[in-house]
Design a protein around this nucleic acid. Structure first.
Lengths: 143, 143
DNA sequence: TGCACAGATGCGATCTGGCCGCAACAGGGA
DNA sequence: TCCCTGTTGCGGCCAGATCGCATCTGTGCA
């Protein structure tokens, strides 16, 4: 947390109360928070902090590599600390979010790198599909 | 094409000129068309077909499993025939869209299935990362 | 062939997520 | 403490997508 504030200052940025509170919320949360949810949590401590300030600060923190966002399904993006980053699987049946270590993608990363020269970042976009319960469900309907 | 029209009728739907034209455009195109682009192509043949009709027909065709959409990066969704479906990698540096056969995901699919019980659908969301050119570029900047 | 009805369409309004410009405000170095 | 510049609140704006409603049109049936 202090490291992040130092990073901000080092880049010519300022440590404002809105940034401090946003970071506190991010460190307290367990990831998967949308900008709107973050705003709500921040405004619980300082009601005057505007949603667009949240967006701007999230952008800044992304530029510094502290935070990243991912797109889980069709809804709004969610933000998390880069240090806690992991991959996401979203069930198209029930909407469940399944987390997975990035390590699961190492095989895919290797073959995509060798076949296409492409270096993947599996944290940014979720993979859709069906969770075990919903997969069984749909198998029962059309076997 | 005729099969699709039959499928429509079988489900209690109707074969309208807007649906026929939309399907023609989809069969002619090589995938990666946004709703807006599809509308443009459709309106070249029948100017009165409204964008919201395109959206509604695309929804219907998705419900029938004929069409599916994927999210390439942050922009609008793109639509393609399910029969031509493949996976997508998007370069965060230059925006390039790299196509890949779904087969590349078989290893990942297997381990995700056994580890998490999750059945993935790699066609729906693109994987972000860096194409070979941009990956080299960024390696040069911070080696 | 003509009729009736449910499904489809055109149109505009609306919604959501996110970004922007601008004037006012506030860190923090001198 | 003062000043400069980065930051903020606010409202407006944008793109992508969906919805409600009156109207129209396939299609089954007589």
């Amino acid at each position: 947390m202090d490291q992040v504030l130092a990073l901000l200052r080092a880049g010519g940025g300022r440590v404002t109360s809105s940034r401090r509170i946003l970071l506190e919320v991010l460190f307290d949360a367990d990831g998967h928070l949308t900008a709107e949810e973050l705003a709500e949590a921040v405004q619980a401590r300082a009601p005057d902090i505007h949603l667009s300030t949240i967006y701007r600060n999230l952008d800044e923190l992304q530029r510094l590599g502290v935070v990243l966002h991912s797109h889980l399904g069709h809804g709004p993006a969610t933000y998390q600390l880069a240090a806690n980053a992991h991959a996401h699987f979203i069930c198209e049946g029930c909407g469940a979010v399944v987390e997975a270590p990035v390590r699961l993608f190492s095989g895919l990363a290797r073959s995509v790198k060798s076949d296409l020269g492409f270096v993947i970042d599996p944290r940014h976009f979720a993979i859709l599909g069906r969770c075990s319960a919903c997969a069984q469900e749909s198998r029962r309907h059309r076997p």
